[in-house]
Design a protein around this nucleic acid. Structure first.
Length: 595
DNA sequence: TGGCCTTTGAAGCGA
DNA sequence: TCGCTTCAAAGGCCA
């Protein structure tokens, strides 16, 4: 795998990613801190024991607020996704970007967890990665708990956690850390966490706040990893399916989730029940749930059983307003986007998401099959988890919760003249210049220059080793593939006889929008692949194929399969990348530092 | 203040 | 089955 050996083309991409991340030395310091922290794992364990004990007896009002919210209703899902993204990004960064921005991650890898995918009982790298991403997020305390006024970077604590923040070395778990700090027993603080600071409230020595120590991860990663997860049942247990379903039908918001002994011990029912508004109707707030207070959407004859939240017998509308908004699970591209956005923003001066998304869209296509497969797999897991968390949820439920887009935009209007945010689209065919040497100055606003930022080929080099065809990818995932550039991504890539043209070749508008305004997309079935667009790398034709190429031939789609069957070679390759990435982090960090 | 823009993918619905 | 529509994230921009 290119990103594993550090010799792959991904290194190129890593280079530019490094641009956005300064303070390499600082990172190294943090790492060493974490290493020492690892040695204190035992101490931390005992501390955690105390912590859990303290949690129940905490008198702090803030804690009292947090306590009943083992999971934030709004943030955790976001964070979950952020962690997804971060893990993926690190993965993609290959050897260069291995400095663990989240030193705690390795400790979040649960070594003794049974791999839900591998028959040998070992936790697959993918599963680890997934858990790493899932777990911390699930562990993030409630929004209230996240907002620590002492935090140097309140933005991190906001509902949205831009990935770019990671570049500033603030662990996304900072909220969790803060949370943990307050509950940490002062008795056995890790050696590296000199509790010289006394808690003004209690007078008890407390571990310094992140702002007091460093913007980085103040707690031992081991400590974080040891923190009992409120959703511990999500973590696969020995010989247990990752999403095992309780035979008894655990009466729980997430009925599909198993309640095992571990869960019952660390997540006693009394922890779950009461939930403030905005939580999942079932009582446990889920990250995918967006409180109506935060996301008020007009109308919506909803869908979910009303009543649950209505404390006062108000109009049905009020009840609906109180209904949680369960977001759709992110698809592969969304996951990728969340991960890569920060990089693009860092590399370029672009700020507008529209422009950034265009870049991301191209980069997405520049990804190798394997890389994309990772996101597809993660997205699939997201959907699985989501469907299990909300068995009755349907995408339809969210219909109408957003205001409809204006349809009055003339589909035929040229991009240049269209709309206020009209973004220039490069004339096609468009050849991406090689800007492997990234310079922020090279990026100016809007796409004409954005193109300069958007150098998929050079950024990852993945196209060089990505399979040219799905069949090739499947047949020999590890085998160096033929060229795979956006220009080279031919229609032939798709095994699908015809695909939906998502984006019109010229306008680039999604077919949905464009076509909604009628004939714009001459596309449609026969024209799904406008002849002119075939060899072009823009988001046009093949975009709609990338996913099917994967998801269809690769047996990811089946939960049963993915959970019970050994991964396909292709899958394994992707999984391996996860595994190797984390294993090679420290070394790569050095490499990066010296770089 | 809230919708638009932009991307891809998933899902739902109607024909 | 196909095509279309909507939503998911993100943040600057604009009415």
């Amino acid at each position: 795998m290119p990103q594993l050996n550090g010799g792959g083309g991904d290194d190129l991409g890593a280079n530019d990613e490094m641009i956005s991340f300064k303070d390499e030395g600082e990172q190294e310091e943090k790492i060493s801190e974490n290493v020492s922290a690892e040695r204190d794992l035992d101490d931390l364990k005992s501390s955690l024991v105390n912590e859990s004990e303290n949690n129940s007896s905490s008198s702090d009002s803030e804690q009292a607020e947090r306590r009943p919210q083992p999971r934030p209703d709004l943030d955790s899902y976001e964070k979950t996704r952020d962690y997804f993204s971060e893990a993926l990004r690190r993965q993609q960064d290959g050897g260069f970007f291995k400095s663990p921005h989240y030193p705690g991650y390795p400790f979040l890898m649960i070594p003794d967890l049974t791999n839900p995918y591998l028959s040998n009982g070992a936790l697959s790298p993918s599963a680890r990665t997934y858990l790493q991403m899932k777990w911390p997020l699930l562990d993030v305390p409630g929004a209230a708990g996240l907002k620590d006024p002492r935090s140097p970077t309140p933005g991190h604590l906001s509902n949205k956690v831009p990935v770019v923040q990671h570049a500033h070395h603030v662990h996304p778990l900072t909220p969790l850390i803060t949370y943990s700090n307050e509950h940490f027993s002062p008795g056995t603080p890790p050696s590296h966490l000199s509790p010289e600071i006394l808690d003004p409230k209690t007078g008890i020595p407390r571990t310094p706040h992140p702002s007091e120590l460093s913007p980085y991860y103040p707690l031992s990663p081991g400590a974080v990893g040891q923190i009992p997860h409120p959703l511990g049942w999500l973590v696969p247990q020995q010989g247990q399916h990752m999403y095992s379903i309780p035979p008894g039908g655990f009466r729980h918001p997430y009925p599909a989730l198993a309640m095992n002994a571990s869960m019952s011990s660390r997540f006693s029912p009394h922890m779950m029940p009461h939930h403030p508004h905005g939580m999942h109707q079932t009582g446990i707030p889920h990250p995918a749930i967006v409180s109506p207070a935060i996301k008020q959407e007009p109308n919506s004859h909803d869908h979910m059983s009303p009543s649950m939240h209505s404390k006062s017998p108000g109009p049905a509308k009020k009840e609906e307003d109180k209904k949680p908004h369960i977001k759709k699970p992110l698809n592969a591209f969304m996951l990728y986007m969340k991960e890569m956005r920060a990089k693009v923003v860092a590399e370029c001066t672009l700020k507008e998401s529209a422009a950034i998304n265009q870049i991301l869209g191209r980069r997405w296509h520049s990804l190798s099959r394997e890389e994309q497969a990772k996101y597809y797999e993660l997205a699939r897991k997201e959907r699985q988890l989501h469907s299990q968390l909300y068995p009755g949820w349907s995408a339809r439920d969210n219909y109408g919760k957003r205001k409809k887009r204006k349809r009055d935009n003339k589909p035929d209007s040229t991009p240049e003249g269209k709309g206020k945010n009209s973004i220039y689209r490069p004339p096609l065919p468009f050849v991406y210049p090689d800007f492997s040497i990234r310079n922020k100055n090279q990026c100016v606003q809007y796409l004409p220059s954005e193109k300069m930022c958007d150098s998929p080929a050079s950024s990852h080099g993945s196209m060089l080793d990505s399979p040219a065809t799905p069949s090739a990818a499947l047949a020999s995932p590890a085998a160096p593939a033929a060229t795979h550039s956006e220009q080279a991504q031919p229609l032939s890539l798709t095994t699908k006889p015809e695909g939906r043209l998502h984006h019109h070749f010229l306008t680039g508008k999604p077919s949905g929008s464009a076509s909604s305004s009628s004939s714009s997309s001459s596309s449609s079935s026969s024209s799904s692949h406008p002849s002119i667009s075939i060899p072009i790398g823009t988001s046009g034709s093949h975009s709609s194929h990338s996913a099917p190429i994967f998801s269809r031939p690769i047996p990811f789609s089946s939960l049963h399969h993915s959970m019970l069957s050994p991964p396909s070679p292709f899958h394994q390759a992707a999984l391996h990348s996860h595994h190797a990435l984390f294993q090679s982090q420290p070394l790569s960090l050095v490499t990066k530092s010296s770089d």
